[in-house]
């Protein structure tokens, strides 16, 4: 551990604001890159399933 206290860890000798902003932004962008395909997948499955069901109902 390079930091003696939690305050020192957040403050990082005055560079904390830059470091935490950069890490925060990275977290947001990486998480969005997982989140969007997951949502898209759910929507695709839902849409295609309902399309299949509709087609089946028409046949009946």
């Amino acid at each position: 551990m390079k930091f003696e206290s939690l305050t020192a860890f957040f403050y990082m000798d005055g560079h904390g604001i830059y470091i935490w902003a950069a890490y925060g932004l990275t977290l947001v962008i990486l998480a969005a890159n997982v989140w969007f395909p997951l949502i898209a997948r759910r929507n695709i499955i839902r849409a295609e399933k309902s399309a299949v069901l509709k087609a089946m109902n028409r046949k009946l």
Partner: peptide
Amino acid sequence: LLFVPPDYQQGNSVRI
């Protein structure tokens, strides 16, 4: 964030 030593010139901002 926790274990890397700071840089001799940049200090902690090297973590970026």
